[in-house]
Simulated assay, not measured.
Amino acid sequence: MKTLYEVPALKRAHDVLEILAQATAPVRASALVEGTGLSRSTLYLLLDSLEHRHWIAKRSDGYIIGLKLFELGSAYVRHDGLQVAFRNEASAFVAAHNEVVQLAVLDAAEVVYIAREDAQRPVRLVSDLGSRLPAHCSALGKALLASLSDEEVTAILPERLAAMTSHTLTRRSALLRELAGIRACGLATEREEVSVGLACFAAYVGVTALGKRVAVSTSVPLGRLDGRREKQIVTGIARIASRIAAAL
Results as ranks from 00 to 15, higher is better:
156 I>N: 00
112 V>K: 15
146 A>W: 00
89 E>R: 07
93 F>I: 02
87 R>N: 15
83 Q>Y: 07
150 D>F: 02
125 L>D: 14
132 R>V: 11
126 V>R: 13
64 I>N: 02
49 S>W: 08
138 S>F: 08
73 G>V: 06
50 L>P: 00
76 Y>G: 02
39 S>R: 04
46 L>I: 09
106 L>I: 12
118 D>Q: 14
94 V>Q: 06
84 V>I: 11
41 S>P: 03
159 E>L: 02
34 E>T: 07
123 V>T: 12
34 E>P: 02
69 L>P: 01
55 W>H: 14
105 V>Y: 05
92 A>W: 06
77 V>P: 04
102 Q>H: 14
78 R>D: 10
45 L>A: 13
136 H>I: 01
149 S>D: 03
64 I>A: 04
57 A>Q: 13
136 H>K: 09
135 A>K: 05
66 G>H: 03
101 V>P: 02
112 V>P: 04
79 H>V: 13
78 R>W: 07
116 R>Y: 08
85 A>Q: 09
148 L>Y: 06
56 I>D: 01
120 Q>P: 08
62 G>M: 00
101 V>N: 00
43 L>F: 08
133 L>H: 01
129 L>V: 10
147 S>M: 05
102 Q>G: 12
81 G>W: 11
141 G>M: 06
100 V>G: 02
110 E>R: 13
125 L>W: 10
105 V>M: 09
35 G>Q: 00
63 Y>A: 05
148 L>Q: 03
53 R>V: 12
102 Q>C: 15
95 A>G: 04
148 L>I: 04
126 V>W: 15
113 Y>S: 00
120 Q>D: 15
76 Y>M: 12
118 D>P: 10
89 E>I: 14
105 V>G: 10
63 Y>F: 15
56 I>E: 00
